[in-house]
Amino acid sequence: MSLTIYETIDDIDFQPSYPAKGRDTGSDGRLIWEDSDKKGTKVVIWKAEPGLYVIPARDLDETFVIIEGEALCSLNESEPVKITTGSIVHIAKGVAITLDVSKPLRKVATIVLNP
């Protein structure tokens, strides 16, 4: 078994992700790892430019750590909470999230597709 090292700051292998409200672009994602059957768990890096990201409820659990940037975060239209470097957020299956990104944001997320 070999050791694979990923640098979260590297801007390689990113694919377009959710657009910011009112734009066609805004965020990108990079797959770091997924389980062998590609049906259960993934680790990704997501980066977003300032803007409003409204992500509908999904059929998955996600836990992420902010490694750079700042945003206001609300789940299912709750009161927004400021998140910044070091914040850890859990989004349960079926919960919508809104991120109002004020400073370029980068997060590392673990996604469980079949919770």
Rank of each mutant, 00 (worst) to 15 (best):
K21R: 06
Y6C: 02
T4S: 05
I32C: 02
R30E: 06
D59R: 15
G40T: 12
K21S: 09
T63Y: 10
L60E: 15
K38A: 14
I45Q: 06
W33M: 04
R58M: 14
G29H: 07
D35G: 04
F14G: 01
T41H: 08
F14Y: 15
D24N: 15
S17Y: 15
K42R: 14
R23T: 09
P56C: 11
D35C: 07
K42E: 14
G29S: 12
A48C: 13
K21Q: 05
W46K: 09
D13F: 10
Q15F: 03
R58K: 15
V44K: 13
V54I: 08
K42V: 04
S2D: 10
T4G: 00
L52Y: 06
D24S: 14
R23F: 08
I9D: 12
Y6S: 09
L52G: 00
G40S: 12
A20D: 02
R23Q: 11
D11Q: 12
T41Q: 11
Y53P: 00
R58A: 15
R30Q: 09
D11A: 13
K39H: 11
R23L: 07
P50I: 03
E49N: 08
P56E: 15
V54C: 01
G51N: 06
P19M: 04
D24Q: 13
W33D: 01
S36K: 05
I55Q: 03
A48N: 10
P19G: 02
K47L: 03
G26W: 06
K21I: 05
D24K: 12
I32P: 02
S17F: 15
K38M: 10
Y53S: 00
I9S: 13
D61F: 13
D35I: 03
P56Y: 11
V54M: 02
G26N: 02
K47G: 04
E49V: 07
D35K: 03
S17C: 13
R58N: 11
V65A: 13
V44G: 03
P56N: 14
T63V: 15
V43Q: 10
D37Q: 11
L3C: 00
G40M: 09
F64V: 05
I9L: 12
F64E: 05
T8Y: 12
I55N: 02
L31G: 02
P19Y: 00
K21F: 02
S27P: 04
Y6L: 08
E34A: 05
G26K: 04
I45V: 15
D24Y: 04
I45C: 10
I55P: 00
P16K: 10
R58S: 12
V43Y: 04
I55C: 03
V54A: 02
V65W: 09
F14H: 04
